[in-house]
Amino acid sequence: MNSCAESGCEERAAVRIYVPWDADRDVCAGHARVLVQQDGVVAEPLDGGDDNW
Results as ranks from 00 to 15, higher is better:
13 A>N: 05
34 V>D: 14
26 D>K: 00
11 E>F: 06
7 S>W: 11
41 V>P: 00
10 E>A: 12
50 D>G: 03
24 D>E: 12
15 V>R: 11
25 R>E: 02
25 R>S: 03
7 S>I: 08
39 D>M: 05
6 E>I: 14
25 R>L: 02
37 Q>V: 11
48 G>C: 09
20 P>F: 00
1 M>D: 06
4 C>A: 05
51 D>H: 11
43 A>M: 11
52 N>K: 14
5 A>C: 02
14 A>I: 05
35 L>S: 04
38 Q>Y: 15
23 A>E: 13
41 V>K: 07
8 G>S: 01
19 V>T: 12
2 N>R: 13
48 G>T: 00
17 I>E: 00
52 N>I: 03
12 R>G: 09
18 Y>A: 05
25 R>K: 15
42 V>P: 02
32 A>N: 08
14 A>E: 01
46 L>K: 12
52 N>D: 15
24 D>S: 12
47 D>V: 10
23 A>V: 12
40 G>I: 09
36 V>K: 12
4 C>Q: 04
40 G>R: 07
45 P>I: 02
36 V>R: 15
35 L>Y: 08
43 A>I: 03
20 P>G: 02
24 D>N: 15
27 V>H: 06
5 A>P: 02
46 L>V: 07
28 C>P: 01
25 R>Y: 03
37 Q>R: 15
30 G>E: 06
13 A>W: 00
12 R>L: 11
28 C>I: 03
16 R>C: 09
47 D>Q: 13
38 Q>E: 11
26 D>W: 03
9 C>S: 08
34 V>N: 04
31 H>T: 08
17 I>R: 12
38 Q>R: 15
24 D>M: 00
38 Q>W: 08
9 C>A: 06
1 M>W: 08
16 R>I: 06
13 A>S: 07
27 V>W: 00
51 D>N: 14
9 C>M: 01
28 C>S: 07
52 N>F: 13
33 R>G: 11
34 V>M: 11
7 S>T: 13
9 C>I: 03
24 D>W: 05
37 Q>E: 15
